Simulated assay, not measured.
Amino acid sequence: MPERPTAREAILDAFVEVVVEQGERAATLQAVAEHAGVSKGGLLYHFGSREALVEGLAERLDALGAEDAEALRGEADPVARFIRGSIVRETAIDRAFVAAFRLIQSEQHPSLREALQRVDDGYRGVIADAIGDDLAPVVALMSDGIYLRSGLDPAWAPSDDDVERIVAAVDDIVRRARD
C-alpha cells in the first residue's frame, strides 16, 4: 500500500497542481489550501508564505533531479535512457518542471532558476561522463527539443520510432567522434 504523503508534501503537491493546471496567478495561498484540503492556517504552519511554497518546489526539484541523475548514472546506456526519458510522462519531476517553468516565466524566483540549473548540470554531468564534454550539450539540446514538443501537445511528441532513430543517430555520432 502506498505511503500517504505528509501534510507538507500534500500542500506542495496542491501548489504544483494549481500552478500547472491554472497558472501561477491562480496559486494563491487560499486556493492552494483549498486544493490540499487544509485550512489556510494549516498551510501557513508548513509554508509561511507563497515564497516558502516556491522554496519547497525548488527543494523538490533538487531531490527529484538528484534521484533521477543517480538512476541515469546506473544505466548501461545513460544517453539512450536520457533521450527516451525526454518525453513528458506526467511524472512527479515532469510536474515539478512545468510548475517551475510557469513560475519563472512571470516572476523572478532565483531559487527555482538555481534548482533547474542544478538538475540540468546533474544530467549533463552524467551524459558528459558517458560520451564526453563536447557531445553532452548536443544531447541535452536534443532532449530539450523532445521534451518541449511532447509537453506542448501530445500530438507533437515524437513517436517511439522517431525516438529510436534519434538514439541510433546519437550512437552513430558518438561512435564517429571516438574513431
Rank of each mutant, 00 (worst) to 15 (best):
F82M: 01
A58T: 10
A80G: 10
A71R: 14
R149I: 00
R89M: 04
R176F: 05
D133P: 05
R165L: 07
A76L: 04
R113Q: 10
K40P: 06
A115L: 13
D134G: 07
A136S: 09
E55T: 11
H109D: 07
D144F: 15
A31D: 01
V98E: 15
G145H: 07
L112I: 09
Q108E: 14
S159N: 08
R50S: 12
L61S: 04
H109M: 03
Y45P: 07
F47W: 12
E55P: 13
V20N: 08
R25C: 02
G48E: 10
E51A: 06
V138E: 04
L64A: 13
A52P: 15
G56V: 00
S150Q: 15
A96S: 15
P5W: 11
A80Q: 07
G48N: 12
F15T: 00
G42I: 00
V16S: 09
A169C: 10
G23V: 00
R165H: 14
D68I: 00
V98T: 07
A52V: 12
G48P: 13
R118F: 10
A7G: 06
A69L: 02
P154Q: 05
G65F: 08
A168C: 01
A69R: 03
L43A: 08
H35E: 15
G85M: 02
S49A: 02
A31S: 08
W156C: 01
A168G: 05
H109Q: 10
P5K: 12
R95E: 15
S111K: 01
G145C: 02
L141K: 12
R89I: 02
G125I: 08
A169R: 11
T6E: 06
A157C: 09
P154Y: 02
E21C: 02
P110E: 12
A168M: 02
V174L: 03
A136V: 08
L12Q: 09
Q105W: 09
T6L: 09
E90T: 09
E17R: 15
R25T: 14
L29V: 10
Q30P: 11
A92N: 05
L12H: 13
I87Y: 05
E24K: 08
A128H: 02
S150K: 14
V174T: 11
A69D: 04
L112H: 11
G23H: 12
D162G: 02
Y123M: 05
E67K: 04
E114H: 05
E164C: 00
H109F: 00
A99P: 09
Q108R: 10
G41I: 13
A96K: 14
A69G: 01
P5R: 13
V54R: 06
R84P: 01
A14Y: 05
L12I: 03
R25K: 08
G125Q: 07
Q108L: 14
E59N: 11
P5Q: 11
E107P: 02
V38T: 00
E164G: 01
R8E: 01
V79G: 04
R118T: 03
A10P: 07
A136F: 03
R60E: 15
F82D: 01
D94G: 06
A169W: 03
E3A: 13
D161N: 06
A140Q: 14
G145I: 03
R118H: 07
I146S: 05
E67C: 04
S159K: 06
